[in-house]
Each structure stands twice: as structure tokens, then as C-alpha cells.
Simulated assay, not measured.
Amino acid sequence: MMKKVFLNCGAPEELEVKRIVEIKSLSYLERLERLMAILEVSYMIKTAKKIQSKK
């Protein structure tokens, strides 16, 4: 059975505190993996914009 999807609703300050606690609970390797994923997505978006503008 699939889990229900839960959207983060609440005050931005509360969400920021939750995110900080979540990140602090991660190991160094998990933090690094998240950073690499963000960099990969950022690079893909950047290169996709260049490819579209060339068409």
C-alpha cells in the first residue's frame, strides 16, 4: 500500500526550522549526496536553457 502524500503546509519560519533539524540529523555523506543532486539538477537546467535558445 502506498503512503499518502503530505504537503508541507505552515508558516515559512516553521518549515525552515524543520528543514534545518532534518539537515542536521543527516550524516556528512547524506549531506554531500544531497548537494551533488542539487548541483546535477542545476547543471541540467542551465544546459537545457542553452539548448532551447539555440533552436
Rank of each mutant, 00 (worst) to 15 (best):
M1Y: 08
M2T: 07
M2Y: 09
K4Q: 11
K4L: 08
K4D: 15
V5A: 09
F6E: 07
F6D: 04
L7I: 06
C9L: 13
C9E: 12
G10F: 01
A11T: 06
A11S: 05
P12F: 00
P12I: 01
P12V: 00
E13C: 01
E14L: 08
E14C: 03
E14S: 04
L15H: 04
E16K: 03
E16M: 04
V17N: 01
K18H: 07
R19F: 01
R19C: 01
E22W: 05
E22C: 03
I23C: 02
I23G: 00
K24L: 10
S25Y: 03
L26V: 02
L26Q: 06
L26E: 05
S27G: 10
Y28T: 14
Y28A: 15
L29K: 14
L29Q: 08
E30K: 12
R31Q: 15
R31C: 04
R31V: 03
L32Y: 07
L32F: 04
E33V: 06
E33P: 01
E33W: 08
R34W: 04
R34V: 02
I38G: 05
L39K: 09
E40T: 09
E40C: 14
V41W: 12
S42P: 00
S42H: 12
S42D: 12
Y43S: 14
Y43W: 06
M44F: 09
M44S: 13
M44G: 02
I45Q: 13
K46I: 11
K46F: 11
K46M: 10
A48L: 11
A48H: 15
K49P: 00
I51F: 11
I51H: 06
Q52I: 09
Q52H: 14
Q52Y: 10
S53T: 12
K54G: 10
K54N: 15
